[in-house]
Design a binder for these strands. Structure first.
Length: 840
RNA sequence: GCGGGCGUGGCGGAAUGGUAGACGCAGCGGACUUAAAAUCCGCUUGGGGUUCCCAGUGCGGGUUCGAGUCCCGCCGCCCGCACCA
């Protein structure tokens, strides 16, 4: 073996061998236990970033480990290739979105190959190709046939200058990102998927996701948001229509001091018909964007219509307001305002001088207690509420619902926060929605034999808006039903649709249908899915929905796509900056422009110091990005892979550092030197090393299966140090060989290179080392001896030493006697093999 | 605003309610070397009267023989909020 490991030659050599021997191609016909390991596929932005490297390294270690433990592994890769950045590139650089995307894919694929990932490239797919999105169109038509697709009006962000629809991220401080115009809400007829039909199923299904993080399950449950409440009608006093409201807190009905309706509500519209002021207020509500965060942080505004309704119990007059915080989409578009126990209502009432009453108190004696500047939404006992007084919130809810139902003015109702999924996008670079609009026949699905509806290539991006709409020929077709001239739908599908079934297409890729049912039965569900926490709700919920929808219409037999989910943290980096003297703004520098000392940093260009800023998520604007390619070129793939796994727990953020990658590089070389010391001919036994080796193998296996790579890494460091210090023996050589196998999933190139002199064939195809269970058990344990809960001494005893003996040994300790200082021992707590606690 | 999460040495972190700081990074000291790099050895939470003692896991309370871990209330940071992916 050479003196140093040289990744520049070894990396490519082994990558070629793996390719040529198709080591990582999944065999559909295999009889081995199967394991489908999947990382969220990337958007082809042009370059792999460190976050991708982290994501794919984790999946790769698991995939390689699974292969070593006898599994047939499916570990595929593809491209989430539709989306806005391609259109932005087209507008900025004049390139075609398709050309730009495909070039990016080629570059990023080469980058992934340089990292040595054990991927089955034979199943590669890109969602922007007709052989993918054509099948998606077919599935969309199937869902349509099953009644799960419909059209309705819905609000979008409208840029009145560019005359175009804006994505939420294109709205900055209420203005269009390019034009700077104040954004308005505008109604458009759009396509929707009936995800709400699955609300109950999706909610119940969460319970069965045993291997999902609790936090993600909780977020999904809250997002679906099942709530039981009262839907009821307020009788009008000085007008004719009843107002139907929905409340999740009917218990607080005696605290109602007003009724508020959404700007789009029929009552609001009726009032506006002969009130210019009301019209102006409704127009005001149309200003601004459509996001929930924007709506909820906006100042609470209202308009008193002058209408009054009658309180169902007290008979009191309640004023009817139009309010900007009431949503037409949720419940009935009208609410009863209970300022004492709802924060929005509280702010609203404070602003407009409406009464604020207390109807819930922690203690009945506090019925007259004032509010401390905010609403009290918590639990308690009903007060000032007639027949409800003294009841708990839960009981009072039931009581009010029962009364309303028996008196016939309302009924208990389950309402979901989850809304149907709007999939229409007024954009070019996405899957065309396969429908045709005919004046005579209405909305007509494109016949399946005419799929795919292919995106035209000859489009221009000189003007804002969707180029499909202004394309000279593309949208003009004959109606499939009546044959008369008609037009194609020009909306394309949300890219979340593309990512809602790609994991099914990986199992098999027939040309004539989206997937093969048997292949899905074999491979799905994905055994381990890995991706960012930012996808905790939307992508994962949509993928779950899509899978259930396909199961419901009888196309597949699996209901939940991902058996285990892991959400990894971001990769962060220090920032380097100077404050610009002229305008006081920070000027950022890239890590490559910096020379980093122990606690300081200076700019290479002028040698003067720069400030080391906060460690934050890598972003172009802060220039704190590092290029994986440059790291691979300097240190090789294994060092960067090792860095991704070391130190930080995978679910937390990982701070990148030059020093850290240097340390990984040194460890690569340290292992190389250790592997060179392997000698099959050595003899002699070293029990301590044998034990340490087997304990490490067992622990590392456990850690990898739990994706606790940082712990596995620490174990490997410990074993390495122990083996380095040990005298030559057969045990030591066996341990060296074991270390090689343990690091093989993490540093596959180094492992292959060393294995080529130590082992047979390829280490990528080798078996995980076996352990002797007898060696895993320690025969001696260290016991903590505490006095009043404070550590005073430790005892080393045989494992399983009896309670009485431990007590005696503890009392015999000088240190314990000194700590007791003559005090009488009142109680002794003994945890066998753990500790003795003397309570004085 | 709403929902979710996180907070432990100079830094990343470890710790089934049971010896806080494993392991790594940085730093300091030493060995080797003409010298440097590489490598190896040692030290490294703070304070003190340094074989020992005290304090200590964001802040304030609580439960427990015992709390980094469980409960309540704060503070700070991060993620998501339905057209970014």
């Amino acid at each position: 073996m050479t003196e140093r490991f040289d990744p520049a030659t070894a990396d490519t050599r082994w990558q070629r061998v793996w390719d040529e021997r198709a080591c990582f191609t999944a065999d559909d016909a295999s009889t081995k236990p199967r394991s489908y390991v999947l990382e969220m596929f990337p958007y082809p932005s042009g370059r792999i970033h460190i976050g991708h490297v982290r994501n794919y390294t984790m999946g790769d270690v698991l995939a390689r480990y699974k292969r070593m433990t006898g599994h047939e592994v499916l570990h595929p890769m593809g491209w989430d290739a539709f989306g806005m950045p391609a259109e932005n590139a087209a507008m900025e650089k004049g390139v075609h979105p398709g050309g730009w995307t495909r070039e990016n894919i080629a570059n990023m694929k080469a980058q992934l190959k340089r990292l040595g990932f054990a991927l089955d490239w034979s199943r590669e797919l890109a969602t922007c190709e007709p052989d993918y999105y054509g099948h998606e169109q077919a599935l969309f038509l199937d869902l349509y046939a099953a009644g799960l697709v419909y059209r309705k009006e819905s609000s979008v962000n409208w840029d009145p200058i560019d005359q175009t629809v804006l994505a939420n991220e294109q709205v900055i401080d209420g203005r269009g990102w390019r034009s700077g115009a104040l954004v308005e809400k505008r109604k458009l007829s759009q396509w929707f998927l009936k995800i709400t039909d699955f609300a109950e199923e999706l909610l119940e299904g969460v319970q069965g996701l045993e291997h999902w993080p609790d936090k993600v399950k909780l977020m999904q449950e809250n997002w679906i948001g099942k709530s039981r409440g009262l839907q009821f009608r307020f009788k009008p006093i000085n007008f004719f229509d009843e107002i139907e409201v929905y409340s999740t807190r009917p218990d607080t009905i005696f605290g109602a001091s007003f009724v508020a309706v959404a700007a789009e509500h029929p009552v609001a519209q009726a009032v506006a018909a002969d009130s210019a002021e009301a019209q102006a207020f409704i127009a005001l509500c149309k200003q601004g964007g459509t996001t929930a965060a924007e709506l909820e942080t906006a100042e609470k505004l209202g308009f008193d219509t002058g209408l009054k309704v009658k309180h169902p119990f007290t008979g009191a007059d309640l004023p009817v307001w139009i309010a900007n915080f009431v949503l037409m989409d949720y419940g009935t578009g009208a609410v009863m305002g209970v300022p004492g126990h709802d924060q929005r209502d509280f702010e609203f009432s404070t602003k407009y001088g409406l009464p604020i009453a207390r109807v819930v108190a922690t203690d009945p004696a506090d019925a007259g207690a004032p509010f401390q500047g905010e609403a009290e939404a918590g639990d308690g006992v009903l007060v000032n509420s007639d027949f409800l007084n003294g009841q708990s919130v839960t009981d009072a809810k039931a009581a009010v619902i029962a009364r309303a139902e028996s008196e016939g003015w309302g009924e208990g109702k389950t309402v979901w926060r989850l809304r149907d999924w709007g999939v229409s996008r007024q954009r070019y670079w996405g899957t065309p929605i396969p429908f045709i609009h005919c004046e005579a026949c209405g909305v007509v699905p494109v016949p399946k034999d005419q799929l795919p509806v292919v995106l035209p290539e000859d489009v221009d991006f000189q003007t804002p808006g969707n180029p499909l709409v202004r394309h000279a020929t593309w949208k003009y077709v004959d109606c499939p039903q009546c044959g008369k001239p008609a037009v194609r739908e020009t909306d394309t599908l949300d890219t979340f649709v593309d990512s809602s079934w790609y994991f099914l297409r990986f199992a098999s890729q027939p040309a004539d249908k989206p997937f093969d049912r048997e292949a899905i039965a074999k491979w799905l569900p994905v055994e381990q899915y890995i991706g960012g926490i930012e996808h905790a709700i939307l992508h994962l919920l949509y993928a779950r929905f899509w899978t259930r929808a396909l199961a419901r219409i009888g196309m597949i037999d699996v209901k939940e796509p991902f058996a285990s989910l892991f959400t990894q943290g971001m990769v962060t980096h220090e920032t380097y900056l100077r404050i610009d003297n002229a305008n006081g703004q920070p000027v950022y520098f890239a890590p490559t422009e910096i020379e980093r000392g122990g606690e300081s940093a200076k700019l290479k260009a002028d040698g003067a110091p720069v400030e080391i800023g906060r460690v934050i998520k890598m972003s172009k604007s802060k220039k704190n990005v590092v290029d994986p390619d440059a790291i691979v070129a300097t240190y090789g793939a294994d060092a960067i892979r090792w860095f991704m796994l070391s130190d930080s727990p995978p679910e937390r953020d990982l701070p990148w550092s030059e020093a850290g990658i240097e340390g990984c590089w040194r460890f690569v070389q340290r292992l190389w030197r250790l592997f060179a010391q392997f000698d099959a001919a050595t003899t002699g036994e070293d029990k301590a090393i044998d034990r340490k080796r087997d304990q490490t193998v067992a622990a590392v296996a456990q850690d990898i299966e739990a994706l606790s790579f940082n712990k596995a890494v620490a174990r490997i460091y410990e074993l390495t140090s122990a083996v380095e210090k040990a005298q030559p023996s057969a045990s030591r050589s066996a341990a060296i060989r074991t270390i090689l196998l343990l690091v093989a999933p993490m540093m596959p190139h180094l492992a292959e290179e060393a294995w080529s002199t130590i082992g047979d064939d390829l280490v990528s195809l080798a078996a995980w080392p076996a352990v002797d269970p007898a060696l895993l058990v320690e025969d001696e344990v260290t016991i903590a001896v505490q006095v009043k809960g404070k550590l005073r001494d430790t005892l080393t005893v045989a494992k399983g030493t009896a309670k009485e003996e431990l007590e005696a040994l503890a009392l015999a300790s000088d240190k314990v006697q000194r700590a007791l200082d003559g005090a009488e021992v009142r109680k002794i707590i003994v945890v066998p093999d753990r500790l003795v606690n003397l309570v004085a």
